[in-house]
Amino acid sequence: MEYKGVWILGEQDEGRIKLVTLELLKRGRALADKRNVPLTAILLGEKIDAESLKKLGHYGADQVIVVEHPVLRYYLPEPYLNVCKVLIEKHHPEIMIASATTTGRSLMPALAVKCATGLTADCTELDIEEETGNLIQTRPAIGGNILATIKTPVHRPQMATVRPHSNKPLEPDPQRQAQIIYEKVDENLLGSRVKRIGFKANPAETASIQEADVVVAGGKGFKKAENFKMVHQLANLLNGAVGASRDAVDLGWAPYAAQVGLSGKTVSPKFYLAIGISGSVQHLAGIKTAEMIAAINNDPEAQIFQVTDFGIVADLFEVAPLLIEKLRNHLPDKEA
């Protein structure tokens, strides 16, 4: 059996294509170019916006395989698993990557079992080994203390999930076109014992620390719940999301959804501002792929300063109000 081509598993929400899809296309494009093979995006959904599907070509896809059905509107383990498996058995891709989102990290392990192949979780780097064509997968492990490089030497397709927002999409090229292929799947494969019977959206501000360009996070240095509102003010001024250390979440100052670190969420914003956070290893591992990190802490020995691009050793109760004031002056139309 010849396995050929690079696949990315795209994601959509209410028919709109999610950013992680474009991020994966950039990763996939680099791998496909090295292997000199086409790059295919797989999209499952109910009614996916046709214009957006076309744009996947601009972002690097050569081909888009779309499967639409009402049961595929939201991720559900069984139909997604069955559809992906059937597509793999039909087309035999050599590599399939997905985003390490709640969908990717749920679907891919089950898919790897069903396809009898290897899967590497939450990769931060992917490359091709020239001599063999093997996918070289690099990921942090043991609380971010090591970087492991992993291969799937024999089994195909080689599968990996990629840390969301650990890279940006390609600049769109309107000249690039992708071939869009709608595939039908046997109805028998579309049953689901798991039913989605409701949804509660997060309040706008906590929308998603994983998708925000800016994350302002607070720790136990704030001393009291009411002081934590400064984190919200700063996040608002910077159009960012509010994050929190494990201590702050355990103290009830922020919801678990805001927890940054290995026991919470890993984030890769353009700018991460840590205030009153000493920086446990598990926290540092969760922010490593942020583009720029700044910290405010009164302890010069705080581990957070090991990973900062800019650190201010000072009392947060002096620094934060002043920073809020300065940002307000820069953005006079902002309320916070």
Partner: peptide, 11 residues
């Protein structure tokens, strides 16, 4: 718990 909220699932 998903990225943008909470799904209610039955199975």
């Amino acid at each position: 718990m998903v990225e943008n909220g909470y799904e209610m699932l039955s199975m």
